[in-house]
Design a protein around this nucleic acid. Structure first.
Lengths: 204, 204
DNA sequence: ACCTTTTCGTAACAAGCGTTATTATATCGC
DNA sequence: GCGATATAATAACGCTTGTTACGAAAAGGT
């Protein structure tokens, strides 16, 4: 019983996600959120709690609806394809919407006042989760001979995500898709070759 | 004539720089700046103008006193050494101070409200300057045969700085120096080899 | 020793922030 | 239709933001 909600909670969350994506946690004001969602302040509070919990829910949604290219890449069959999937996915997502470039996971709260500390911590933890999943995938590849036996999988995971983050920073600065795709391809140039094939290179 | 200043302008600017470095442009409040500099608000205004001009002066100082590892790297003798100098320099600076990790050029204003737009634009322009200088250096290397004739120097410059930015993001998340150094080394694995030497690789 | 000039520090400004009381409105069970 | 319940929107809350009047204090020139 009671009055029924006049707005769709998921639509409102999606709109709020967009604001956080563009302006970050602290840069997004409730005035912005009200305009973007079309929902008045008290309704946002009753539906999502305070700003921090709203941001966390937006991050959840971002992880499952936008940053899902990472788990998708992890399911690819070779470590190199995984790395490629992450990098190309980062380029694609970071440039998909011209009004919210870059990555919410990076834009959200890189630096800020003390009040943004919990949001920052949540983003750091989320990025660390992705990195751990990537590292485990590379470790599996190493055990399967898909990566050289002496590969440093933690470094490879950190490297791939570092490039992805750098791409997100550059996308936020307005870099073109083509430029960033070239960066991603360059990043794959030094990818370790599997140890059980004979490779001979020669350049003039 | 007139009363003499009781604080050192450069010391105050240095302290303000530290606050911007840690909290970014919008995250740094005048309350923070007053505490860090030991200078009251009106004195900061009379010495530096408003918050935006204070930030721009802090960025200038950052460029010349901290981010000078980039022009230093550019003076190295080979393109690979240049890339190494930028990447290792980014790691070193991003982890030099435990209370202000990462890079002011990235932390300063990646995302934010509309009021941070000019600070964002200044940071973007500054990073673009560094990238252009790096690209020109690589073009010189290419013309000297230090890089292959078909090298895409714009991509190489964007790539090196993308990794540097990604390293800065990870440093801000608390990554250890050793981890980031390993990332930087991995980033150099695919660096193009000079075209006038015969290279033969063989792995078992 | 005064007068001018510059800086200092307190205190205030309007505007914006995140958050919430409060009242009105719409829906459901009976 | 009536009472119970949940949401709607207006309006305000206290606090912080960046910025600035204002009067007190200190320095130099004549």
């Amino acid at each position: 019983m009671g009055r029924t909600r006049t707005f769709d909670v998921n639509e409102a969350l999606e709109a709020a996600l967009g604001v956080f994506w563009r302006k970050g946690y602290e840069g997004a004001s409730y005035a912005d959120l009200v305009v973007a969602t079309g929902v008045e302040r008290p309704a946002l509070y009753s539906a999502f709690g305070n700003k921090e919990t709203l941001f966390l829910r937006a991050l959840e949604r971002y992880a499952s609806n936008y940053a899902n290219y990472v788990p998708a890449a992890i399911e690819r069959s070779t470590a190199r394809d995984v790395a490629e999937g992450v990098l190309f996915g980062a380029v694609e997502l970071s440039t998909r919407f011209s009004d919210r470039t870059g990555c919410l996971g990076v834009n959200g709260a890189l630096a800020g006042s003390d009040e943004a500390e919990q949001a920052r911590a949540a983003l750091i933890a989320w990025r660390a989760d992705g990195e751990a999943a990537l590292r485990r995938r590379f470790e599996r590849a190493r055990s399967e001979g898909d990566l050289p036996a002496n590969s440093d999988c933690a470094t490879l995971a950190a490297y791939v995500l570092a490039v992805a983050h750098g791409i997100a920073v550059q996308a936020k600065a307005g870099f073109a898709v083509d430029t960033l795709m070239a960066v991603a391809r360059q990043a794959l140039e030094g990818w370790p070759r599997s140890g059980n094939t004979l490779v001979a290179e020669q350049r003039l």
